[in-house]
Design a protein around this nucleic acid. Sequence first.
DNA 1: ATGAAAGCGCTAACAG
DNA 2: CTGTTAGCGCTTTCAT
Lengths: 332, 332
Amino acid sequence: MQKQEVTIYDVAREAKVSMATVSRVVNGNNNVRKETRDRVLAVIDRLHYQPNAVAQGLASKKTTTVGLIVPGFTNLHFAELSQGIDDIATMYKYNILLSSVENKLLEDDQVIQNLLNKQVDGVIYMSNQMSEKARNALIRTNTPVVLAGTMDSNPDFGSVAIDYEEAERTALNILYQDGKRNLALVLNDERAYVNDAHRVKAYKEFIAEHNLNSHIYPQVKSYEDGYKVFEQMHEDKIDGAIATRDMTAAGILNAAQDAGVKIPEELELISAASTMVAEIVRPKMTTIRQPLYDIGAVAMRMLTKMMNNEEVDDLHITLPLEVIEANTTLNK
Amino acid sequence: MQKQEVTIYDVAREAKVSMATVSRVVNGNNNVRKETRDRVLAVIDRLHYQPNAVAQGLASKKTTTVGLIVPGFTNLHFAELSQGIDDIATMYKYNILLSSVENKLLEDDQVIQNLLNKQVDGVIYMSNQMSEKARNALIRTNTPVVLAGTMDSNPDFGSVAIDYEEAERTALNILYQDGKRNLALVLNDERAYVNDAHRVKAYKEFIAEHNLNSHIYPQVKSYEDGYKVFEQMHEDKIDGAIATRDMTAAGILNAAQDAGVKIPEELELISAASTMVAEIVRPKMTTIRQPLYDIGAVAMRMLTKMMNNEEVDDLHITLPLEVIEANTTLNK
DNA sequence: ATGAAAGCGCTAACAG
DNA sequence: CTGTTAGCGCTTTCAT
């Protein structure tokens, strides 16, 4: 950090007013005569004065900064979400302080405490399950929080997501109606990702209801994992599968084709989180699409309201999902 | 931002020392008797004291925050770079203030000015060409800057990248040695991306040297653009192409296959920026790989040195590139 | 409409 | 080794 060339004090002196007046001008306070305002503005312009946001933050107890907690960057899923968040944040002049919590030595409560120390005005959390400790720190400091991409009914936090149980049922129904009876659910990490837990719940209900055998493949996290898990799925005679991530679905798809399995005749595949990857693979992947950009944008918008102490009509928003039937299902 | 429950002052009173002493133990200053330190630490623990980073920033003129400027989030290319940056930043206890400059109403100088107002200790810039105005603001405030993924010899800024001209020549040589003579260069945006300009330079030199015809396809920015541009390439009888982005390369690849063109026999394809996408498509894409994670990590490491006023041996680092020959080239 | 003055919570000489 | 004393640059009552 460099020494600041020109401060509010310099402007005040040059414009022959008090620093309080300069502050008013800078903050758009109306209690300034137009004449005075213009004079101050001219000096600000001439001196290239720029307010020091850190000093503003200390004095006003507002930093116009929000903390964004993501599980990692390499996941396109979260890239789209971030885009929605960033666009709205920019619109409302908030900055984003970014933290990731994957493969890290840091626990989520350390990450959150750090954000809190930096005095963020609010937090968007789009990672996996939050620890009690982290949750308490957030509540104790009374910091507004919105969970993005997570179903949650906690009254302390806002949330924006789709209905993951409905997403699962929708996908299962497609497979079932195409005559598939050996249905698999390929998961990332059930314990870490709450959404996966919802999916499991809907899956188990469906399986029970239709008297089918349960085939859950956990801990399938990457393209390679997906590629590898296919072998087991093949042994298990799976004829319809739902994967919670595009990358793993792509891995299964390619492995199946390399093994000479006909898609979708012998194996139908549905990806539950859709990114560009679903469109690039051949055949194109059928997906239950979550509106990722919208989830991010709506979450950020909700957060701005909370930070501004505005009324939030609905703390828990469920966005509609979209079914995109492509060529890894029969499309009957 | 909530009112701070407990301040350094409270700790001082409870521990019966001055706030200066508390400050010392918080900052790990050795000039504190072990006994005193332990007593203060105990109080800090009991009161759950957490230092206010904003106040620290104002007083010390250091925010332990760096600005990261990216061109957008949906590009996997930059996601990997960010990962490298974030890992090192976390290691050195810096936070990342994120700004994107794509499709935005904001110019880069506004984005940078905003970051400067927030008193960031340094900036990592991994976007397209920087405006004069932005550059001057950075230099005037004496803020350390590292350009990530951009070849640059500006003595004011550090830079970490691969040699994009060499990358281009390497790719061209592969195609040429496979007997291809109608070589295309598919670009994102030559004017915006400096790297593309380097590629064009190397391409034109190669074309001239070998007496070939030049085929440059500019403004191909997305998967769809790539898919569409293939038609023109087909008319132009292109038999070897280099695309600067995986997504566009994937578009061309799929379009070609949909049109019944044999890959790689009738058309060889090389992607110049490699992400997971290159591995997912079939056939697998031959790529000239940039070590994205490393570029980010090395850039951030360099920045920490600059912020710490340490000697930086080499302000402009060129990382080695890697050729991954897969199945969109003949592999002779 | 404007100014004076008191902080915001912390760091950093300087003294001792 | 520890305390005292100024600020850092700005916002915000409270007067006027």
